[in-house]
């Protein structure tokens, strides 16, 4: 899957300006970069919730995709119903939902109103429902930002498993370089709406080519 000439302008300011970016099927991508570097805008454009200046859509080559936004809406219904929103409501789906919720330790909240969940619990619910949609490409905007460490690791395990078992391509934004190192095959570093550098995660983290990447890595450290 290839992206080219994506441009998004807000109030005459160019927020996103990507010449070319390629995603290989079946890999886990981590998009990193400072706040306001355009990561969310990129993933929104891919998800189709934001249109580019020339109103072009990203071509997923016929593959299905699901997107977990940074801020997820919890509908005024049970957590379980929220989780099943984007999937079939048959017994198999319900079983999978239950086991995912159990992994993220929100199984006890299945019957509770989802709008009463905390920020981290809402993120877990949203991750469950995005995974359950069974899409071939998952677009995740900081899925674990609100989760505690234990839950973050559990969420990473779910993402890894979806990638391995169903071969889904994962494109996720993260603020944690250590998460990128743990989880991703490929790293995309963004700055000021542009992709500065992208490549295999280990390679980019250990031997970055561009000075901007070096500065970013030095500043954030790799232990964060």
């Amino acid at each position: 899957m290839k992206i080219n000439n994506l441009k998004k302008t807000y109030d005459k300011k160019v927020i996103l300006d990507i010449d070319e970016l390629e995603f290989e099927e079946g890999k886990i991508y981590a998009i990193v970069g400072a706040n306001g570097s355009g990561k969310s805008t990129l993933i929104r454009v891919m998800a189709g919730t934001v249109v580019t200046d020339d109103r072009r859509k990203v071509d997923f080559c016929g593959k299905t995709h699901a997107y977990m936004p940074q801020r997820n809406h919890a509908f005024k219904m049970s957590t379980e119903k929220n989780v099943l929103l984007g999937s079939k409501k048959d017994d198999a789906a319900k079983e999978r939902a239950a086991s995912l919720m159990k992994e993220l330790k929100i199984d006890g909240l299945a019957k509770a109103g989802a709008h009463k969940l905390s920020g981290g619990e809402t993120a877990k619910m949203a991750l469950c429902r995005t995974v359950l949609s069974d899409a071939q490409i998952l677009l995740l905007d900081e899925p674990t930002a609100a989760m505690d460490i234990e839950s973050t690791l559990a969420a990473e395990e779910i993402i890894r498993r979806v990638n391995r078992e169903s071969g889904a391509t994962i494109i996720m934004i993260t603020h944690s370089l250590s998460q990128a190192r743990r989880l991703s095959d490929m790293l995309v570093f963004m700055k000021d709406g542009k992709v500065v550098e992208s490549g295999e995660t280990e390679k980019v983290l250990s031997t970055p080519e561009k000075t901007e990447t070096k500065e970013f890595l030095e500043f954030f450290g790799s232990d964060k």
Binding site: A47, T49, G86
Partner: peptide, 15 residues
């Protein structure tokens, strides 16, 4: 108040 997040969510799930 509710629609921006709601729309991102439903669109993200392909509804």
């Amino acid at each position: 108040g509710i629609v921006p997040d709601l729309r991102e969510t439903t669109k993200g799930l392909g509804l």
